[in-house]
Simulated assay, not measured.
Amino acid sequence: MRLKSNAVITGVGGFVPDNILSNSDLEKMVDTNSDWIVSRTGIKERRILTDPTLATSDMAVAAVKNLLENTGVSAEEIDCLIIATSTPDHLLLSTASIVCDKVGLSNAWATDVNAACSGFLYAYTLGASLVESNRYKKVIVIGADQNSAIINYKDRNTCILFGDGAGAVLLEPTTEDIGLMDSVFKTDGHGREYLLVPGGGSKIPATVDSVEANQHYIRQEGRIVFKAAIKGMTETCTEVLKRNDMTIDDVNWLIPHQANYRIIHAVGENLGLSEDRVKVNIDRYGNTTAATIPLCLWDFKDDFKHNDNVIFTAFGAGFSWGATLLKWGTLRKA
């Protein structure tokens, strides 16, 4: 009889571009000012991939290489790679397949997941399920987005929010009572009109007219998304705790999607969680979409201890949202 396997995070990696786009830089580009941006979003700067020869896959490659270096695991040992992204290098061709080729993951199969800002959360649960099945031993899950490729830097409502980056985790099986414990996910297509890139897909293929109409840039109804994000993240965190007979006092860390500091603060406050137990790096990176949660893991990995109870929560286009409860393990050391 095979023992039940749980999927535990045994390694983390990350990458952000060197180029910094500060609030002061944005003041020269659109009608805004740094004090207003910080007060409304908590963002002071964001990283931008400026090299025109590079794309989302290249950031993901850098994150995976950092992950493998941190863990001492070889590329040939990886069984599967799942990349969450809303900004693939190309339509039709998966970004995950490009990453496999560039990193040399010769024994892995790979696929993309698109759930916008909830993408990493969904991909992480999918990857964990593969490990729990006992069919795969080492699965890499990545969140990566080059948001600068779909941002209109003349639109002050969106250009202040987004940055570029990639984060990755390694999942492996364990018979310990650690790793992913439970998830609560929701999807409601009724929210699709409030956060999307209208053009570029089969509904509105790229044409001269669609480009001139700026249909290939992010469009967002900020107030609607703001309220829905607070409600959705609060409710799913509460539900996943209730389902596991836990209270907020049992939670060591909340790692929320980094969309807006006011959203992060409101969710923590609604849950009754003190600020020192909520991880925040939005001030340095902005909203990197699917990369925000794994970049938090990368930034703060030394703070997490064995058996710590951690909640990931996110909200994104669709609308899509949810919360995942996990018990932290021990990271590999190269």
Rank of each mutant, 00 (worst) to 15 (best):
S118G: 03
I151N: 03
L93H: 12
V103E: 00
Y136H: 11
G119K: 01
A149D: 13
I151G: 07
C159I: 02
K102M: 10
A108C: 11
A116S: 09
R135M: 13
V99D: 08
K154V: 00
E132L: 11
F120S: 00
S118A: 13
I160S: 00
S97W: 01
L121C: 09
R156S: 15
T158L: 10
L161Y: 04
S133N: 14
Y124S: 15
T111H: 11
S86N: 13
L92P: 03
V139T: 13
T111G: 08
T95I: 01
P88T: 00
Q146E: 08
L126I: 12
C100R: 05
T87F: 02
Y122V: 02
R156T: 04
C117Q: 02
A84D: 08
A123I: 05
I150P: 11
L93D: 12
N157D: 14
L105N: 09
Y153P: 13
H90E: 14
A84S: 15
A96T: 03
A123K: 02
Y124N: 11
T158Q: 04
L130Y: 14
A144K: 03
T95K: 14
S129E: 14
T125C: 15
S97D: 07
V113F: 04
S148V: 05
W109F: 12
K138V: 12
A123W: 01
C159D: 02
N157K: 12
V99T: 03
Y122A: 02
A96C: 07
C100E: 09
Y122I: 06
P88F: 07
I150G: 08
A115G: 02
E132F: 08
Y124V: 12
I151H: 04
L130A: 10
D101E: 14
G104C: 09
I150Q: 10
